[in-house]
Design a protein around this nucleic acid. Structure first.
Lengths: 241, 241
DNA sequence: CCACGAGATTTGCATATACATATTCCGCTG
DNA sequence: CAGCGGAATATGTATATGCAAATCTCGTGG
């Protein structure tokens, strides 16, 4: 691009990498001040805007904190939350090296019971799509999915073929933007769940509930159950702001 | 700032908001092309660089996809993962409206058993700090924490007072940067765990394991156990790239 | 001695301009 | 008509410059 892109990296990326290295190596500890935009610009031989971009992006990534007049300093990460990524079910199974299968156990459009109606934030008497599915890994039960879909938010779901694609994947591809709330818990399998998952009643089951919103409407609510003994949800995270 | 910051927002933020709104309202669906930098610059009355910044940030946030010559389009979110935030234990308890307490059950520096040594990626014969803690919410057992800390990575941990601050929080404040892997599972409580958590043996327990790295070294490995019946880890997410 | 206001400093936003780079499109050639 | 090469186009990076906003410091007046 310009004089010195010896690493093939843009100048602002080289500055970011340099600062990150010094923080990682402990040269600059949490709370320590780091050079300002003008100083960095001079020492790297770039314009202030380029140094500004490097610092701005580091700030957005949560690596540093910036305030006018006060300058930039290494972020103190108190209160930082841990972030956990849950892959989609097909990928999860694929990463185990197992063959993924989907079985649609039930599909009905009906007026949901009061408890579900509240979770979907639906008007009284409004109908919703209810699905019961079993996800298999190498022909063994892997996840039992109990899902309700708000047809007012996603009318196209009424015509989707959920024997071919998991509702979670279908929704990800058809709903433009969303937020979700999660509940994670453990419970002892009741007889019905035990039968569906092929375990003994009372065995520990990992339960994940997810409610997804779009445009202030609840799109879907789902409860996933995994045999606790055989299943482990392993993920990686990077700390973020 | 300039001519028109009627919302108090910078120009690039107003452009981002406008684009996000059109996507959310469905005017532009997944995969649809959106106006280019020059076009946006003209229609908003800003320079191309300002429009560029708006689009660049939206791309980084995963809202749109950009390619040279091809232009920008609304992201198709297939393969997108779900992200889940786990708050720190103190905040988790505080959000339940309960009083948080910490009880240090055991603290020893010793050569870890082989299984733990492998998890910490420690050399043979190397010593590590082992902690056993009980976290209480309103005087009731909330979480049992079994933690090992690599003293080579965090020597200062040897002198920390873990009766006053939870190891997780202490580490967040003293280790400059880190990544982690998680395992989530459900299991039936063994007698020892049941006794510590005040539940009956066999009851479902939510298990979370976390291994944290820094500078390619394992900093700490911990296993958390929650009474499954009483505890629900509720979190929210926003989809990201 | 404290309060208040005037710099000084640092980050934040925006412009105009220039050139680099990736990729598509189109037309030329065989 | 297939394949190749160059033009066109949109994004990507960088410069120099100017002003805005936040906030710390210091000096002055009551």
């Amino acid at each position: 691009m310009d004089r010195q892109d010896r690493d093939g990296l843009p100048a602002y990326e080289r500055i970011k990498a340099e600062i990150r290295t010094r923080i990682r190596e402990g040269e600059w500890g949490p709370g320590d001040p780091i050079p300002g935009e003008s100083e960095l610009a001079a020492s790297f031989g770039v314009s202030r805007l380029t140094a500004h971009r490097a610092l701005r992006e580091l700030a957005r990534e949560g690596v540093i904190e910036r305030r006018r007049r006060r300058g930039s300093r290494v972020a103190v990460r108190t209160g930082r939350d841990i972030v956990l990524e849950i892959p989609r079910i097909e990928r999860l199974v694929a990463e185990l090296g197992a063959v993924y299968e989907l079985r649609l156990l039930a599909r009905r459009t009906l007026v949901p019971p009061a408890e579900i109606r509240a979770r979907l934030e639906l008007a009284a008497g409004e109908r919703a799509l209810h699905l019961l599915l079993l996800h298999l890994a190498d022909r063994r039960p892997f996840q039992l999915e109990d899902r309700w879909i708000n047809l007012l938010a996603v009318p196209a779901a009424a015509d989707a073929d959920f024997t071919a694609i998991a509702p979670g994947s279908w929704l990800l591809e058809h709903v433009p933007w969303s937020e979700a709330e999660h509940v994670i818990a453990a419970e002892n399998a009741d007889p019905a769940t035990a039968a569906a998952l092929g375990i003994r009643p009372g065995e520990a089951v990992l339960v994940i509930e997810r409610r997804t919103r779009n445009r202030n409407r609840v799109v879907t609510w789902a409860r996933f159950r995994h045999p606790g003994a055989s299943y482990r949800l392993a993920t990686a995270f990077a700390p973020r702001s």
